[in-house]
């Protein structure tokens, strides 16, 4: 992370930076999806529909490591770190508050990187099914991924029987985040 940025960047520049960080992150989710076993076996239309519905939620999981609950700072993917107070002044308060709350809940589960990756795959294929042409294929893919996630977690922590259900409870949290915040506005400078 870079040192906290202060007065040398204008509000507009910070907002542009925040907006721009989503572009490479979305592209990474598309590449991630292509690597999920079975995802490219879906029709291209269904792959696109799941990505459009689920990418925001995958990004919420991906971004939760950028939130420092102790310091109350957020690190953007370009390396800039800002205190929450600065970002609130730009009007990002409600989205960031929700992301802080979500990242604390998910962080408390202590997932390993491979568990987090498999959880992100489950999040993506559990996204809204409006517009999906082959529901059965998507459900089969989802069931397989959930089984794999359960197996990985219970094998690694056989005594923590509450962990997997707690993890699945994050799915409705993500849907709520999506419904409340995906209509937030971004601004990209046109040179």
């Amino acid at each position: 992370a870079c040192p906290v940025s202060g007065a040398e960047r204008t509000s507009q520049e910070i907002w542009e930076s925040f907006s721009q960080c989503f572009t490479p992150a979305v592209k990474e989710v598309v590449e991630f999806a292509k690597g999920i076993p079975g995802f490219q076996g879906l029709s291209q239309q269904d792959q696109v529909m799941l990505l459009k519905s689920g990418t925001f939620q995958v990004l919420m999981v991906r971004f939760c490591t950028l939130f420092n609950a102790g310091e109350r700072t957020v690190t953007f993917l370009n390396g800039q770190t800002y205190p929450l107070s600065t970002l609130r002044a730009l009007g990002m308060g409600s989205l960031l508050d929700a992301m802080f709350e979500f990242s604390e809940k998910l962080g408390s589960l202590g997932l390993e990187p491979d568990e987090m990756a498999l959880f992100m795959a489950v999040v993506l294929v559990s996204a809204d099914r409006s517009g999906i042409s082959d529901m059965w294929a998507v459900e089969q893919l989802q069931e397989g991924l959930i089984r794999a996630l359960r197996s990985l977690i219970t094998r690694r922590r056989p005594d923590d029987t509450a962990l997997f259900p707690k993890l699945l409870l994050r799915l409705p949290d993500l849907r709520t985040l999506n419904n409340l915040h995906s209509d937030k506005l971004l601004a990209f400078r046109i040179d």
Partner: peptide, 25 residues
């Protein structure tokens, strides 16, 4: 003065995904 393209996060995500799949067809 700077000009900005403004869109929702959902629309931006949708746009990137559509571009990516069109490029790879």
């Amino acid at each position: 003065p700077k000009t900005h393209r403004v869109m929702t996060l959902a629309d931006h995500i949708s746009h990137i995904i559509t571009q990516d799949f069109a490029r790879n067809q």
